[in-house]
Design a protein around this nucleic acid. Structure first.
Lengths: 213, 213
DNA sequence: TGTACATCAGTGAACGCGCGTTCACTGATGTAC
DNA sequence: TGTACATCAGTGAACGCGCGTTCACTGATGTAC
């Protein structure tokens, strides 16, 4: 029935389990039994658990970053007005939507992985991600600077991370928060609902008056 | 030389290691060897690794939450003007400063633990923290609502989580970001620097115009 | 005051278990002559 | 076309290791009579 290859099945299972239990909390036996493949297949296809984790991140991040980069480049060379903060964030959102479709489960999983990546300062994952995807991030920063030219670089640096934090943190815990809202407020919300609220929040936070320095 | 008790030494070591490597990634042997105590002492004093983790969170969170609650209560019953968003966040900051002194290492560690707690939806830790500290959080929410009375509750719910996300995420990764700033921008920043920028960001984000619903 | 017993803090060694990884092996498919 | 060999995907079983936990034990301190 499943047409996917062994390597793909492993990646699928690993992505789901890493997002739930974290890297150290997920064993290769969990992954292979969920994927319905032989235990030794992980080391055969990926070499080690560590390399499997990189492959999971790479498979998730690469389509998103490639697509985002293309969007940013096309806006950068048109020579017109620089993008506003709202437009920039909307580009990120629509890129994510294009890549992950309307599968909010997968999107949430991706965000949980990103949150985990940040949580794990310790190991070499951060270095790997920085080396692999740092350029896209820096290109994005350039656009943010153009959108808020009067902001001191240091202040802007922090505000961008505040905004990213708000996004990653909220979207990674989306499942849990959705539950709270349903139980305490009797309100059912979708992921797109949150994203729609997130964009103006980030833009307003970044644009706010500079109070120090 | 060390006057602290065995249980305290274990808590100290566990807090540091959990913050760095996460819960699953830290073994009791790491903890006890760092603490310089016998391996069996963890189960003697705490019963299990799981209960040790709860004790770590409890020791870190309780002084902060107790102090915060006292502050909020004293402002709540004075019957004067409701607190502004900035004042509310400043209360959080000054409470944290009072509790953790100016030891930014300890503060960062605390934030990393909070980030980890959010990252781990899976296990029962979230439930434990919700049951133990939910009331302080709800009391804080009441004050936020008073500070932004015209905001629809659902919108406010999300914006508060956006703001918390910005805070937790940034402060948890403070060490790493500090390094980036030093390498790429040749700028050395302290924790208080970031907190000072964080408060207006959160306030501006929450106060921003409502665009949907 | 002395003695018997209880409680407490801590220890050393072992327990079974699940971990990531390795290895010899199978069987199918592709390639060379 | 047939045969020999190489490559590839996958497997089953075992490897040693570190894991959390347990247990019988020690020695110091406290309490009762």
């Amino acid at each position: 029935m499943p047409k996917s290859t062994t390597a793909e099945r492993i990646l699928d299972a690993a992505q789901i389990l890493f997002a739930i239990k974290g890297f150290a909390g997920t064993s290769l036996r969990h992954i292979t039994s969920k994927a319905g493949v032989n235990l030794a297949a992980v080391n055969y296809h990926f070499g080690s658990k560590e390399k499997l984790m990189r492959a999971v991140f790479e498979r998730t991040l690469t389509p998103f970053c490639d697509s985002l980069e293309k969007q940013l480049l096309s806006h950068g060379q048109s020579g017109g007005e620089p993008l506003t903060l709202e437009e920039l964030f909307e580009i990120m959102v629509s890129t994510a939507n294009n890549v992950y479709g309307d599968d909010s489960k997968e999107f949430s999983r991706f965000m949980r992985l990103m949150g985990l990546a940040y949580a794990q300062t310790q190991d070499e994952l951060r270095g790997f991600l920085g080396a692999r995807y740092g350029m896209v991030f820096r290109r994005f920063l350039v656009h943010v600077k153009l959108a808020a030219p009067e902001m001191p670089p240091k202040e802007l640096f922090w505000r961008i991370h505040f905004a990213l934090g708000a996004a990653v943190f909220t979207l990674a815990s989306f499942g849990g928060l959705q539950e709270v809202l349903l139980n305490d407020y009797k309100m059912d919300v979708g992921l797109s609902d949150v994203v729609t609220r997130l964009v103006p929040f980030m833009a307003a936070g970044i644009r706010g008056e500079v109070e120090v320095e």
